[in-house]
Nucleic acid binder design. Structure first.
Length: 484
RNA sequence: GGCCCAUUGGUCAAGCGGUUAAGACACCGCCCUUUCACGGCGGCUACAGGGGUUCGAAUCCCCUAUGGGUCACCA
């Protein structure tokens, strides 16, 4: 039997979830779930300076919102805990020491000042910083002496001087680098906490992670990981590097430059399912023409081979389309539920049947936040000019619009059972009687009722929603305007 | 700058040596229609450039260009 697939989402607690993070988590989740494997949450909080209070809760919340429920994690436990790196501190020290014994690393007592000076010198000479291995030359006695004196130290990875290192990536293939280009990077910081590079390797191994999914920005540091795994004699997981998500200018998406996070998109009126569906397709293709996927369908369809190598640009237009698709797929009741909050403050008239409003809005709504602006005319008739009545294609002029409204007024007033069907029948009868085009009657009424050039729904629908008294009042307003 | 990666229409993308180079979004037009939407039909644009390899290259190799990533006691 094949080994159980275990993937992990390992965010650092910065307080929000980027779109890229969301996608990484999604891919990790899908890779695991496609094979009935486990999806693990691990918090990478080794950078104490960056730590943001409550950020961990945000992670739990967003993961849950997105439907990516983890099987193991700080909040729910598991057999491979603790799942918060700061709580694993002793472990890293232990493995760092072990690595030193194995010859894959060494203690370094260089001060930050010395390093800064070294860096300055090297850069002045036109090069890039590379540790000069000063401490690699220390004798066993010197090291023991310094350790005994409690001198602060870091542990650095010992890179081979010559040759090359290769690693295999599930999407990028085999990648080879010159060992001489590798720096003796720090694995354990002087505060005793590991760097990302070290913590990852140790934790992924200890937690028996089988597939490491991460952004393409780590591609060039992957060889260092392999060297670490090899030094420990551990099995190397499958690497899955995913292409970056960029904004339309071609830059990396970032919170700092105002690009929306997952939660921002939700508050901007996008549905979670639509966001997830859109994001999964940024950098991955099922190989078929299917675009709308449920999470279950994704679990079936997702294949690592479908992941693209080139970066994808986040296109809000396409997200809008997905959102509209998801809205249209809903039942009227479902749509009404999510639309309700957007009516608050926008429609204060309690006589309005909001369900009817939802009905005309559902096929026309792309983003929920556009709702208030589309229903603003319901509470109060906007100020408008009579030129709105003139519409070439509808064959309406100010004159015939006035006639239509005048003719419609008594007919509408005569309706006792005010509902869409009756209004429709009565008005259409009138149209036939007058021998004019439908549009010559309906356009003026719609205009009078909405006071806008564009409205959701037409004359009958609006008349029904507004109610008899208000509809008639607005028709009268129209007549007055056109009579001037 | 060194190293690594990428490059099919405005965007997402299929394509794995022989295709009229899919599909979707956006855009444009037409139809439906009481506006706008929805829906239907159609159009528009693409293999970065140059060399090879091959009977044949979007597909394989090399070079160039462009874009991106990475070079921290950040992740």
């Amino acid at each position: 039997m094949a080994k159980e697939i275990r993937t992990r989402y390992a965010p650092s607690p910065t307080g929000y979830m980027h779109i890229g993070n969301l996608r990484t988590a999604l891919y990790e989740y899908l890779i695991a779930k496609a094979e009935n494997g486990k999806f693990i949450l691990r918090i990478e909080d080794t950078d104490q300076e960056r730590y943001v209070e409550d950020a961990v809760d945000v992670i739990y919340k967003t993961l849950k919102m997105a439907g990516l429920e983890h099987d193991e994690g700080p909040d729910i436990g598991g057999n491979y805990g603790p799942y918060i790196q700061s709580e694993r501190k002793p472990l890293y020290m232990e493995y760092a020491k072990k690595l030193v014994e194995l010859g894959g690393a060494y203690y370094c007592f260089c001060t930050k000042e010395r390093l800064a000076k070294l860096k300055e010198e090297q850069e002045a000479a036109g090069g890039v910083f590379k540790y000069d291995r000063c401490c690699a030359k220390l004798s066993k006695e010197e090291i023991d002496q310094k350790l005994a004196n409690n001198e602060p130290f870091v542990v650095r990875q010992k890179m081979p001087d010559t040759g090359t290192t290769s690693f295999d990536d599930a999407v990028y293939g085999t990648i080879t680098v010159e060992n001489s280009s590798l720096d003796d990077q720090i694995l354990l910081k002087s505060d005793g906490l590991p760097t990302y590079n070290f913590a990852n390797v140790v934790d992924d191994h200890l937690m028996e992670i089988t597939h490491v999914v991460r952004g393409n920005e780590y591609l060039s540091s992957a060889p260092k990981y392999n060297l670490l795994y090899e030094a420990f004699g551990w099995d190397i997981p499958t690497y899955v590097h995913v292409p970056l998500i960029l904004k339309s200018s071609g830059q990396k998406l970032s919170k700092r430059s105002g690009d929306p996070s997952f939660e921002d998109l939700v508050s901007m009126g996008y549905l979670i399912d639509a966001i997830v569906n859109y994001v999964v397709l940024l950098g991955w293709s099922p190989g078929t023409n299917q675009e709308i996927f449920t999470m279950d369908e994704l679990k079936q369809a997702f294949k690592i081979e479908g992941i693209s190598k080139s970066p994808a640009i986040f296109d809000i237009n396409k997200l809008n389309w997905f959102n509209a698709e998801y809205i249209r797929k809903m039942s009227l009741d479902e749509f009404h539920e999510i639309a309700k909050p957007y009516y608050e403050g926008a429609i204060n008239n309690e006589n309005i049947d909001l369900k009817k409003v939802s009905k005309i809005l559902q096929p026309r709504t792309e983003v929920l936040t556009s709702i208030p602006g589309n229903v603003d005319f319901i509470d109060s008739l906007p100020e408008y000019g009579k030129e709105l009545y003139v519409h070439k294609k509808m064959k309406t002029t100010e004159e015939n619009s006035l006639e239509s409204l005048k003719a419609a007024l008594p007919v509408l007033e005569g309706i006792s059972d005010w509902n869409e069907q009756v209004i429709h029948d009565v008005v259409m009868d009138l149209v036939v009687k007058l021998g004019i085009k439908n549009s010559q009657m309906l356009w003026p009424i719609r205009t009078a009722l909405s006071g806008k050039a564009v409205s959701p729904g037409g004359a009958m629908e609006l008349a029904d929603i507004l109610g008899k008294d208000e509809a008639i009042r607005r028709v009268k307003v129209g007549i007055e305007k056109l009579s001037v």
